[in-house]
Design a protein around this nucleic acid. Structure first.
Lengths: 131, 131
DNA sequence: ATACAATGTTATATTTTATAACACGAAAAA
DNA sequence: TTTTTCGTGTTATAAAATATAACATTGTAT
């Protein structure tokens, strides 16, 4: 209930997020350009990130480390988001909804990653053996 | 165990701490003058506070709200700290401490900070903001 | 009334962040 | 192979956040 507030509260400036994620400012802003995060702004136009934003950035980093490109990441993360929304509204009207833990969300992600991995495997093979 | 790392990692700049504690920059620096906190510094001399620092600031605030003055607060808070120091030095001399790279420390911290709020009830800040 | 404690306010210097442009290596496309 | 595109680095410039220090203010105790 109030965990939503804590996790969405715009608190952390760029420097803190860079340390927590080991991403460069350039990268973080680039992912924002691609709508993977939408940090709030301070009165003076500085970005303020929430815990959710940082989580998302770490997910993006994971996916990138697995060789998935931005198009794939967008597909995965933004799709998962729309699904979660649908599930939430449906469940909340049906029965007292059960919150997803980050653990469960990550599991969902892994599932989709398998598909993404399959999708990309041939190009990986090409990279390793034909070039 | 590694919660010590998470709670002592210098991460938060002044602005974030002001929001988390509802204290003014003036107040925060004043309490530092009185050695109630000793925040780290960035390469460019900006203060970087840890979760422990923020906890301590909230304690100070509570005590002030109870009408206790700085002298009393110092007595109260610095008393059990000297005890802690004794324990620490005793422990650290007992067994050789394990080496961590900055890289590893951040990774650990990141994990625990992001996942903070699942079982851990040890921190006032976490109780207030991250759970 | 004076002195001190805790905090506010203001001014100035330095650091951090925002924005935008250009650059570059690697991979994809042509 | 040559040309694009992608993801990120780098640099320059402007604005915001922070550091420091001095002086001001309010309340409290002496």
């Amino acid at each position: 209930m109030s965990s939503h507030i804590r996790r969405t509260m715009p608190l952390f400036p760029m420097g803190t997020v860079m340390k927590l994620t080991d991403l460069s400012a350039r990268q973080i802003r680039y992912y924002e350009q691609h709508h993977l995060i939408t940090p709030d702004r301070s009165e003076g136009n500085r970005r303020l990130y929430s815990l959710n934003d940082i989580d998302r950035l770490l997910e993006v980093k994971d996916l990138l480390d697995q060789g998935i490109n931005m198009a794939g990441i967008k597909k995965i993360l933004l799709k998962d988001e729309s699904q979660a929304e649908k599930l939430e509204t449906k469940e909340s009207s049906a029965k007292p909804k059960k919150e997803f833990t980050d653990e469960e969300l990550r599991k969902l992600l892994r599932k989709e990653l398998i598909n993404a991995g399959r999708f990309n495997r041939s190009s990986e093979v090409e990279r390793r053996f034909f070039h």
